[in-house]
Design a protein around this nucleic acid. Structure first.
Length: 379
RNA sequence: GGAUGGGUUCCCGAGCGGCCAAAGGGAGCGGACUGUAAAUCCGUUGUCACAGACUACGAUGGUUCGAAUCCAUCCCCAUCCA
């Protein structure tokens, strides 16, 4: 029997060097480059699994930190694993919770052994170690699990970044040792902040550990986009070519194109779903705020030519009305559009790569002002 | 007909002699959103020639250096009594 998880490279675009491939997982194949909708709490907010199939989502995310706190990974395991619990039969990737522990549970002590943090829900104390996180992720049973890493904030000085990165490496080793489930792939996570040499060092160290895939963490944490692109360029030559590369937490349509140009295979981002719930639509010509008064009598579809359920059946005026009235359907329809928009974009991206014209494809979309994503430094 | 309580900026509603263009909420308008503590958050909301002036707190008249705030009359509204 074949390996439960393999990555097969398919084509390298002669024009841009971007690549397509296929990830084989126990719950089906994933064509890359891929965008993964985020379903933190065992649900992609506002979407039913049927909706997700409708927009042709292929793999979605779940979150270790959140599912551990509620409902508890043991309950998910009792339910038959995350797939059965949420009734999603295609692939799932679980994030390790490293990002959450370091970004929102602020009262934490970082030890070599693990991290002590307080729940954002009730303030209760919890301790995560690489081993305990592996236990949780194996209970959840996603197709792909992520190592427990330390995501340094932006900006961080060199020494802090080194400490976080080296700890991430040691934890990666421990995660690997503790991970035994054979129907689940465990990805390592490259760190190194905004320091080119550290990024390279991190890539090399993790490559030696031989993971079936690699996350690129610690980017898109508030730095200017140009710096993120530079880091990707510096890093990529040191990432194994025969393994999938997952740029964590990215992105907006422009970042997806820029990431693919630099060799990224997998992306995830909350923007599509969150913005959808808040009344913002992604389109090839940029962002649209459906609440704006100018759409009051605009009876045209959200985006001409879009094949999503929302665009095929409803007008901008109707969407504006739903958002003004805070009707749930508005959030559902826009989330649907934003996901379909992004997944269709990735379908087009793969086709363009396979036809050796991805360079032109990306340039054209970027020039015509495809949604240019969140700005620079936030927080 | 009598008694009592009220009439405040688009709406609700605080203020009860100067610090009031007037709290707070809603609505309106605009902005933000990148490994989801987000169906959330932020800004703004009388007019203008805008560090100032003007018009505004049911109406009119008055007291006062000064009134949304005090007095008089009137007009409405609510509840209760006949």
């Amino acid at each position: 029997m074949a390996e439960p998880f393999t990555f097969e490279r398919k084509h390298i675009c002669k024009q841009s060097g971007a690549r397509t491939g296929v990830l084989h997982t126990p719950h089906g194949d994933i064509e890359t480059p891929i965008f993964m909708p985020v379903g933190t709490q065992a649900t992609v907010k506002a979407m039913t699994p049927r909706d997700l199939l409708d927009v042709n989502a292929n793999i979605i995310l779940g979150n270790t930190y959140h599912l551990y706190l509620r409902p508890g990974h043991k309950i998910v395991e009792e339910a038959g694993g995350l797939h059965r619990f949420m009734n999603w039969n295609r692939p799932i990737l679980t994030d390790s919770g490293g990002f959450q522990v370091f970004s929102l549970a602020k009262i934490n002590d970082i030890h070599e052994d693990g991290v002590m943090f307080r729940s954002h829900i009730d303030g209760s104390k919890h301790f995560f170690t690489p081993e305990s996180v592996m236990e949780i992720e194996q209970s959840l049973g996603a197709d792909i699990a992520m190592c427990f890493d330390e995501c340094a904030p932006y900006p961080s000085d060199r020494q802090y970044t080194i400490d976080a990165m080296e700890r991430t490496h040691r934890w990666a080793q421990r995660c690997k040792a503790a991970h035994t489930r054979e129907d689940q792939a465990l990805f390592g996570i490259v760190q190194g902040g905004m320091f080119a040499d550290l990024r390279i060092q991190s890539a090399k160290t993790l490559t030696e550990m031989d993971f079936p895939g690699y996350g690129i963490g610690g980017l898109s944490v508030g730095e200017p986009k140009q710096i993120m692109y530079e880091m990707l360029e510096v890093l990529m030559p040191h990432m194994p070519e025969n393994k999938p590369r997952y740029l964590m937490g990215v992105g907006s349509p422009d970042c997806l194109l820029e990431g693919v140009l630099r060799g990224v295979d997998m992306f995830d981002c909350v923007l599509q779903t969150r913005a959808g719930r808040n009344g913002m639509a992604l389109t090839r010509r940029g962002r649209m705020t459906l609440k704006n008064a100018k759409y009051e009598r605009d009876f045209t579809p959200l985006e001409e030519g879009c094949d999503c359920y929302c665009c095929r059946n409803f007008s901008r005026a109707y969407l504006r009305h739903l958002f003004k009235e805070k009707e749930i359907l508005g959030a559902q329809l826009l989330t649907m559009h934003n996901l379909r928009f992004t997944l269709r974009l990735m379908e087009d991206v793969r086709r363009a790569i396979n036809e050796d014209r991805f360079g032109d494809f990306a340039r054209e979309l970027l020039e015509q002002g495809i949604y240019d994503g969140p700005g620079e430094a936030k927080n």
